[in-house]
């Protein structure tokens, strides 16, 4: 093992694809999140590994709970280096599904105080235990990710970006 160099500048990339979604029978979100947590733990501080873990679990859970095109593919891509952590999760979606997600992203992206948005939403929805969007809100409020959603060739593509300033 090399003792030289700055380990928190290590470039790591991973791409995982699973198709069809319908064949998934277990906790795929947890498996992928924990795998990436352990892999990044070789190079990066625990706090960064936890961010990757949380974003993969929340975004993949969203896919497994809401994706209606079950014969399509789930794609998870991770890229990290000294500058940024970028995680992309893609799944097949109808234009209507993309529109619904996109509206939610707009609300989250426009929030002046993401933490207050998360808190207000949790308290408001607690009565009927409604979920819808809490996972996305926590990624901006808690983990400080910048989220974007795009529609590319029939796929909903969600990108979560965390600038590594102060960590690398």
């Amino acid at each position: 093992m090399s003792a030289g160099g700055n380990r928190t500048q290590t470039a790591v990339g991973a791409s995982i694809s699973i198709a069809p979604l319908d064949h998934v029978a277990g906790d795929v979100a947890g498996l992928l999140g924990n795998f990436l947590f352990d892999l990044l733990g070789m190079f990066y501080p625990r706090q960064i590994c936890s961010k990757a873990n949380v974003v993969v679990i929340e975004l993949v859970t969203n896919v497994m709970e809401h994706c209606s095109i079950r014969d399509g593919a789930l794609r998870v891509d991770l890229k990290i280096d000294g500058d940024e952590l970028m995680i992309t999760v893609a799944n097949p979606a109808t234009e209507d599904e993309f529109k619904a997600v996109s509206d939610r992203f707009t609300i989250i992206a426009n929030a002046e105080d993401p933490r207050k948005l998360l808190a207000d939403t949790v308290y408001r929805r607690r009565i009927d235990k409604a979920k819808g969007g809490l996972g996305l809100m926590r990624l901006t409020a808690e983990s400080k990710f910048k989220l974007t959603a795009e529609y590319e060739q029939g796929f909903l593509v969600v990108k979560a970006l965390f600038p590594m300033r102060g960590f690398a």
Binding site: R46, Q47, S50, K51, V54, R115, L118, A119, V122, Y123, R138, A141, E142, S143, K144
Partner: peptide, 17 residues
């Protein structure tokens, strides 16, 4: 101390407001 969910979201769940 340095865990995002325990430092950012847990206080919301405790209803510290």
């Amino acid at each position: 101390a340095d865990d995002d969910w325990q430092c950012e979201t847990l206080p919301i769940l405790l209803n510290l407001s």
